[in-house]
Simulated assay, not measured.
Amino acid sequence: MTTRTATTFRPPVMEARRWLDGVAFSADRPLINVSQAAPVDPPPEALRREMARLVMEEPQAHLYGPVLGLPDLRAEIAAQWSVAYGGTVAPEQVAITSGCNEAFCAAIETLTTEGDEVLLPTPWYFNHKMWLDMAGAVAVPLPTGPALLPDADTARGLITPRTRAIALVSPNNPGGVEYPPATIRAFYDLCQQAGIALILDETYRDFHVSPRAPHDLFAQPGWDETLIQLYSFSKAYRLTGHRVGAMVTGTARLSEVEKFLDTVTICPAQLGQFAALWGMQNLGQWLAGERAEVLARRAAIESGFSPLSRKGWKLLGCGAYFAYLEHPFDTPSDQLAPRLVQEAGVLLLPGTMFMPDDDPAGGQQFRIAFANVDADGLRDLIDRLAAFDG
C-alpha cells in the first residue's frame, strides 16, 4: 500500500541543503546560496515597528479570525487589483491563505478528484507537482520549448475529459520568464472554451519588468468563473515566515475553499495579515525600490553572462527572482549540483527537480534564485560557474 505522501518526492530545497553537510567554506570564498527563492532579510524597519505595536496593542492579532481572512485586507486587495489590472474585483472574491502554496492546494481541492488532470508547463514549480501527486491528481507536462513559453494550441491537444485546470506561473518559477499578455489571454480563452479553470500564480508580480498590467483577465466579463489567481506577500514585504498569501476567484469557489482552509489552518495568522495590510497601504515607495533592485540584478546577469556563454552555457530565461541555465556538460545536473557545492562553493538546484523523470532536458539545466545576491556576488557566481570544468 502506498501512502499519499509516498507518491511524491522529497522537498527539493531541503534535499539540496543536505549537500552542505560536512562541507567547509573559507572566509575568502564563502558559499553562494542561490537555491531558494525567499528573501533572507527581515521586513523593513517601519513594518517591523508596526508589527511590534500590533503585538502589544491589537488583541485580534492573537485570536482566531475569519477563515477567509481579514476583511480589511481582502478589501484592500480588491481595490488595488481593480486599479492595477483595469478590472473589477470585489472583496468577497478574495480569500487570504497561509501562503501562496496553501492557496494552490486549496484551489486543487476544489477542482479535482482521484485521477483528474491538471496541465503544468515544464519546467514546473515542484511544489505544484508535489501537491497534485499527494491529492491523487495527475500532473500533465506541457512542454515549453527553448523559450520556456507555453503555447495554448499545444495545451489544447493535451486536454482530455479528465482535465480540470491549467496552472501557469508568471513571472515564472523556475524559468524567470514573464508570459506576454497575449499568451496569458490565449490560455484564459482556451480554459473558458473548455470549461476548465485557469490557475494563474502571480507570486512574483511585484518584480515584473513592465509597470503595466501583465494581463487583462480581470476586465473580462465573468472572469471569476474561469480564473483562479494566486498571490504571495512573502516576497513583496519579506513576510516569508508569517505565511500570508491570497486567492482571487469566484464566490462559489471560495465557499468550497473555506472548507479546506478551516480544516487545515482554521484561519491565516492574524499578525501576518495585519502586517500585509499595513504594507499595502504604506510601503508602495519602498516596494518600488525593491523592484528596482531585483531588476538591476536581473540586468547584471544578462549583461555579465558572456564568461558563461564562451564556455557553452545558455541563459534560457531570466526575470523576477530567477535565472534558468543550460550547462554544456555530459554529466546530468543532479550529479553536478552536489559537486558545485564542494568544488565551486555554489548551491543551486538542478533542472531535474523541475522536470518529469523521463524528460532529459532537466539533466542539462539549473535554476538560480538570485534575489539575495548583489551585483558583486553575481559576478563572482558567474566566474565560479565559468571556471567549473564539469
Results as ranks from 00 to 15, higher is better:
Phe104Leu: 13
Leu308Thr: 03
Cys100Leu: 03
Ser170Ala: 12
Arg243Ala: 04
Leu119Val: 10
Ala137Asn: 04
Gly377Lys: 03
Ala107Met: 07
Glu256Trp: 09
Gln220Phe: 02
Ser82Gly: 02
Asp133Ile: 02
Pro161Val: 06
Lys235Thr: 06
Lys314Ala: 14
Phe126Pro: 09
Leu378Gln: 07
Gln36Gly: 01
Ala135Gly: 02
Arg74Ile: 07
Thr263Val: 04
Ala167Lys: 09
Asn173Asp: 14
Arg49Glu: 15
Val140Arg: 00
Trp81Leu: 15
Thr3Ile: 05
Leu47Asn: 02
Gln193Lys: 14
Gln273Asp: 09
Trp286Ile: 12
Thr352Val: 13
Trp124Ile: 04
Val34Phe: 04
Glu57Val: 06
Thr331Arg: 11
Ala90Gln: 15
Gln270Val: 00
Leu277Trp: 04
Pro171Ile: 15
Arg205Gln: 10
Cys100Glu: 11
Thr265Phe: 11
Leu254Thr: 08
Leu325Arg: 14
Leu190Cys: 12
Thr183Trp: 11
Ala38Phe: 03
Pro121Ser: 11
Phe233Gly: 01
Gln273Met: 10
Ala6Lys: 13
Phe370Gly: 01
Ala155Gln: 04
Leu230Ser: 01
Arg205Thr: 09
Ala84Trp: 08
Cys191Thr: 13
Ala79His: 12
Gly175Pro: 01
Pro42His: 06
Val138Pro: 00
Ala275Met: 02
Pro123Gly: 04
Tyr321Glu: 01
Cys318Met: 03
Asp41Thr: 14
Asp224Leu: 05
Pro307Cys: 05
Asn127Trp: 07
Met134Glu: 14
Trp131His: 10
Thr88Glu: 15
Ala106Cys: 08
Gln270Trp: 03
Gly304Cys: 06
Gly157Thr: 12
Leu142Glu: 04
Leu347Phe: 02
Arg379Phe: 00
Asp224Pro: 06
Leu168Cys: 05
Gly99Ala: 02
Ala75Val: 10
Ser306Met: 08
Leu31Ile: 10
Ala90Asn: 10
Glu109Trp: 10
Leu230Ala: 04
Leu68Lys: 06
Arg17Pro: 00
Val346Tyr: 01
Tyr125Val: 06
Arg212Ile: 01
Lys314Tyr: 07
Pro66Lys: 01
Ser306His: 12
Ala323Cys: 11
Glu76Asp: 14
Met1Cys: 03
Val13Tyr: 11
Leu119Thr: 08
Ala84Tyr: 08
Ala292Pro: 02
Leu378Gly: 08
Pro171Ser: 10
Leu239Met: 08
Pro171Met: 10
Asp262Phe: 06
